[in-house]
């Protein structure tokens, strides 16, 4: 089945990024397709590449890069929400991109299921 995933909260402050990651990993292992992961609201902070989380904890940013680069999942941060929060091209983690709300619309139409984490 085709799943689309929307994440609305920033990393670490809320568990949403962790739950979304664990959900996506489980969905992939069960053979489902992830059409796209879309970050909105403070969720866009998930793609910023300036963070240095402590090494004895999970690296939320590295996990998205792993999904984007290694698993080829399309990971998009909303451009309008990114501009508001100082997240911009050239300062984002590998395996992700910044684009418009049309990407959210498109994945919602295409997927069998949209699930939001927030």
């Amino acid at each position: 089945m085709k799943f689309a995933v929307q994440v609305l909260r920033g990393p670490y402050n809320n568990q949403a990024s962790d739950t979304a990651y664990n959900f996506v990993k489980a969905a992939l292992s069960k053979g489902h397709e992830i059409v796209r992961i879309f970050f909105y609201h403070d969720g866009v902070i998930n793609v910023n590449n300036l963070a240095e989380p402590p090494q004895d904890d999970r690296n939320i940013f590295a996990r998205w890069t792993e999904l984007g680069k290694d698993h080829g999942i399309d990971i998009v941060a909303c451009i309008a929400a990114s501009k508001r929060r100082g997240v911009k091209e050239g300062h984002i983690i590998e395996g992700t991109r910044i684009s418009g709300l049309g990407q959210l619309t498109e994945m919602t139409i295409e997927a069998d299921r949209l699930i939001t984490f927030g």
């Binding site: 489980a26 069960k30 299921r113 699930i115």
Partner: peptide, 16 residues
Amino acid sequence: DYDGFVDLVAQHKTNT
């Protein structure tokens, strides 16, 4: 568990 979560989403439309 997370696998069961995925199964529930596969079975139902989701409202968060």
